[in-house]
Structures are given as C-alpha cells and as structure tokens.
C-alpha cells in the first residue's frame, strides 16, 4: 500500500478539494406511501471529491441518489445542486439540474435502437442543439476516454456488460456535467468486467470529477473515496474519510456491516 493510499487521499492535478459545495442535502426525508425510506438525511458533497455511499440493501442509498437527481420527489428538507434548489415541479430548475448532473445506472439503460455514437450524441443534438458534426466530435472524444473509440458504430446488444457500462459513462460525460452519480454500476457485471469500469471511474476521479457513488466495492471506496457515507435505516449513520470509517467504526451497525464481508 502506498503512502497516499494509506493516508486516505489521492493525487490530484488541481487545487485542493473541499472549498466549494456542489450538492447540499439538508434534512431530507422521503416516503413511498406509508413507508418512510429517508429520515432527515444531511450530506454535503464538495467539488472534486468522490463520495462513496455504502450500506445494507434497502437502507435508502438509491433513493437518496435519485432524490439528488430529481427522479424522486422529496417530502421534507431541501437539496441544492450548484447553488440551486432542486424542485421536481419547477421545470426550469429540473432542466438546469439535468445539465449539471449526470447519472449512470446499474442496468446501463443504453438505448437499444441507437448506435453507441448516437446514444452519446442524442442529448447533445436534441437538448444542447449542437450540430451533428460537433456532437460526433465530442462523442469520439469521450469514447476515447473510456477506451471504446472503435465501438462507435456498434449497437448496445453487440457490447459486453463492461463495454455497455463504459458507454453509459461516456454518454453522461459527453454533456460535461459538474457531478456524476453512479448507482451500483458494477453490480450487474462479472468480476473480470468490473475492473475495466472501475478503471474508468478511477481515471475520472483523478481528473477531478465530482462523483457520488453507491457501491458494494469496498476496496475501491477505501482506496479512492474522499468521504465514505454509511447509510442505515434511511439515515446517514456514519460518515468520514475512508481511513476512519474502515479502521475505526464508531457504531456497532457499521462494525457489523463491515464484518459481514459485503
């Protein structure tokens, strides 16, 4: 283990993170009918950091992520992204949010009827109104970043899971978001394919991308996250640098979670 890893930090090529909050979640609660899933969650995500959210199944990790991206309506509290309050019923605010936040899903959700290239350029041309040529250029660039420059003309069904997920990441990247949300993006992949996706995410982190990921990849979180958030029963149970969280859990719930080998 290298010195920097042991210290829980990672080398960066830009100014020190932590100065500017990108996402501020304040006392958020969320219910599905009678079932309350989030109980007053508060969390701040600073520019240029990677925040890993861990916790048992059903603890509300995905729900929190989806609330940050206005895929779910919140019942209490506030969420601010890049200084703007997220409100699902305010079209302008949602529109701005979409341009600032990218999201990658466990099931890739590539559009099966479009080529890899068109999957990436669709939003560039339709939403950002870029020309096809400009959009193609951007698409080729981001495909290069994820190591799939040769797959531009392939269709999603012709890709392996790992390739599909890298295309999904490229698709989000193409819109140059300020923050990327990842919801268990490697959970559907075989171990061999997990590595290639994690590698792409690691590259992004080193380039200073702000990232929030829900993950079961503890080794990855431990090595690369700036903050690890342990969620339990719809609350932020513990949060802190990975060195603290993994080496010195304060609560029995976290201790048990870590020892369960997840």
């Amino acid at each position: 283990m290298s010195v920097t890893e042991a210290a829980g930090t990672r080398p960066r090529n830009e100014t020190a993170p932590g100065a500017e909050p990108i996402i501020v979640v304040d006392n958020v609660s969320k219910s599905f009918g009678p079932l309350q899933v989030l109980h007053g969650v508060s969390l701040t995500i600073e520019r240029g950091t990677m925040v890993a959210i861990v916790g048992r199944s059903g603890s509300g990790k995905s729900t929190l992520l989806r609330c940050m991206n206005a895929l779910e309506e919140i019942n209490g509290g506030t969420i601010q992204v890049c200084g703007n309050r997220v409100a699902m019923d305010d079209r302008a605010s949602v529109k701005r949010l979409r341009s600032e936040v990218g999201m990658v899903f466990q099931s890739y959700n590539l559009f099966p009827h479009l080529t890899v290239l068109r999957n990436i350029t669709l939003a560039l041309t339709v939403v950002q109104k870029k020309s096809r040529a400009d959009a193609d250029a951007i698409a080729h660039k981001v495909l290069g970043l994820v190591g799939l420059a040769d797959k531009a003309e392939a269709y999603p069904e012709q890709l392996s899971g790992g390739q599909a997920q890298r295309v999904a990441i490229a698709r989000s990247l193409a819109l140059s978001p300020k923050v990327l949300l990842f919801d268990e993006v490697t959970s559907a992949l075989d171990p061999e394919l997990t590595g290639e996706v994690l590698k792409v995410m690691e590259d992004l982190a080193r380039d200073g991308m702000t990232m929030v990921l829900v993950t079961h990849e503890m080794a990855f979180a431990r090595r690369l996250a700036d903050i690890v958030v342990f969620m339990h029963q719809g609350k932020v149970w513990e949060a802190g640098p990975p060195a603290e969280i993994f080496a010195d859990p304060k609560t029995p719930e976290l201790r048990q979670f870590l020892s369960s080998g997840l």
Binding site: L71, R98, V101, M103, N109, L122, A123, Q128, S172
Partner: peptide, 11 residues
C-alpha cells in the same frame, strides 16, 4: 429505465 436515463440526459 430507458425513460429515466433519457430524462437524466435532459430530454
């Protein structure tokens, strides 16, 4: 999921 992905892309 297709719809959510498209929404997230800003469509």
């Amino acid at each position: 999921g297709q719809l959510e992905a498209a929404e997230c892309l800003g469509l």
